[in-house]
Design a protein around this nucleic acid. Structure first.
Length: 184
DNA sequence: AGATTGATCCAT
DNA sequence: TGGATCAATCTG
């Protein structure tokens, strides 16, 4: 088939408004090149964490050893351990000095296709852990995101409140979660 | 609903 | 230095 271009997302793709990048990540592909070979998953759910004032964001309490990566260069991985057990994978966005990132919450992968629903499950399935924290996702090595020229219409995406951030007051209700409609 | 698990952060 | 907290998941 002609016209089916594949492009690895570049720094410039991530150096934009986090909400817009989050929206655009739906339908892109997370690709992991590891010891077990190459795996790819179609991204179907993400959450945006935007700036110092976003009380749901780890960065809302300032720049610390953990959140430092969120203040850094866009297109870099932010991977952390939550509840002592599960890893969560994020992509850093926006200009340097502005803390923001997008959590990858669900992908569809494999044949037959199966939904991997939940950030901890995504990391487990793709072998992502803190060893990949601060990795440059634009290098085309180990971990990156591909645009495979699949258009996803606005009407195919729901905007919902983020999960597990009830502590964040009014910020908990903001529709910063983007999910593809029609998933099981 | 309750247990799990350990890094992180801040106040004691 | 101690302890509350946590962007989750599994089992019942």
């Amino acid at each position: 088939m002609g016209g089916c271009k594949v492009r690895i997302l570049s720094r410039a793709d991530f150096e934009r408004s986090t909400l817009r990048v989050a929206r655009s990540l739906i339908g892109k592909y997370l690709v992991r090149e590891g010891p077990a070979g190459v795996q790819a998953g179609r991204i179907v759910e993400v959450e945006a964490y935007v700036g110092l004032t976003d009380r749901a964001s780890h960065a809302s309490r300032g720049r610390t050893p953990r959140t430092d990566v969120m203040f850094g260069q866009a297109g870099v991985a932010y991977v952390y351990l939550v509840y002592g057990m599960h890893h969560c994978f994020n992509v850093v966005t926006e200009r340097e000095g502005y803390p923001a990132a997008i959590l990858i919450r669900a992908v569809v992968t494999g044949s037959p296709a199966r939904l991997i629903d939940g950030p901890g499950r995504v990391c487990r399935a793709f072998g992502i852990d803190r060893a990949l924290n601060r990795m440059d996702l634009t290098s085309g090595r180990e971990l990156w995101i591909e645009d495979r020229s699949e258009r996803v219409s606005e009407s195919a995406i729901s905007r919902l409140p983020r999960i597990g951030v009830d502590y964040a007051g009014e910020w908990a209700a903001k529709p910063y979660r983007f999910r593809l409609n029609g998933l099981s």
